[in-house]
């Protein structure tokens, strides 16, 4: 499981595995949009009808939402609320926590149902959790072996100044 303080690193191989799982979940649950967010509010991956959607804001608000409900849970002696559901007139949002740190968000309308989404999410969550576990192991190994030099090891002050010009 990912610890709360460890940096999240995403590699191409795992990213592709995650995308495949999300695309399959999108099909099997008949949903509109699916995205994965880090608990800190960073968008990890998204699929579906994302063209007119502000996914960055959605990611940040989802993480805020999970953080706030997590705070509520603690106040009443629960560890966390692992599933949140918001029902709208047309669209609904199903939010669940995977592996303690990643948030899976499914947006669906009347073409699907809460029952179907819950069922498919459960299956996909287990598979996604495995990918994230692999990711953590890989990140740890990379950190130990340092075979691939970090692209940030040689950042200069000029590089940083250039960002602000």
């Amino acid at each position: 499981m990912l610890g709360p303080q460890s940096s999240l690193v995403m590699y191409d191989e795992e990213y592709q595995r995650i995308l495949l799982l999300l695309e399959r979940l999108l099909r099997e649950s008949n949903s509109k949009v699916i995205f994965l967010v880090d608990k800190n509010g960073q968008l990890i991956a998204a699929t579906g009808e994302t063209a007119n959607l502000d996914t960055t804001s959605l990611a940040s608000l989802t993480a805020g939402n999970i953080a706030a409900t997590g705070g509520l849970a603690k106040l009443i002696g629960e560890k966390e609320f692992s599933i949140l559901f918001h029902e709208g007139e047309k669209d609904n949002i199903h939010i669940s926590i995977i592996g303690g740190r990643v948030i899976l968000v499914v947006i669906f309308d009347q073409r699907s149902s809460l029952g179907l989404v819950r069922l498919r999410v459960k299956k996909a969550s287990n598979e996604l959790a495995i990918v994230f576990e692999d990711l953590v192991n890989k990140t740890e190994q990379e950190a130990i072996s340092s075979s691939v030099p970090s692209p940030f090891a040689e950042i200069t002050d000029d590089d940083i100044d250039n960002l602000f010009n």
Binding site: S7, L8, M10, Y11, Y15, Q16, D38, N40, Q42, I44
Partner: peptide, 15 residues
């Protein structure tokens, strides 16, 4: 903590 994404070649930081 920062999020380094090698797949999309992005780095995200929170301030």
């Amino acid at each position: 903590m920062s999020f380094i994404n090698y797949a999309s070649r992005e780095i995200n930081c929170k301030i």
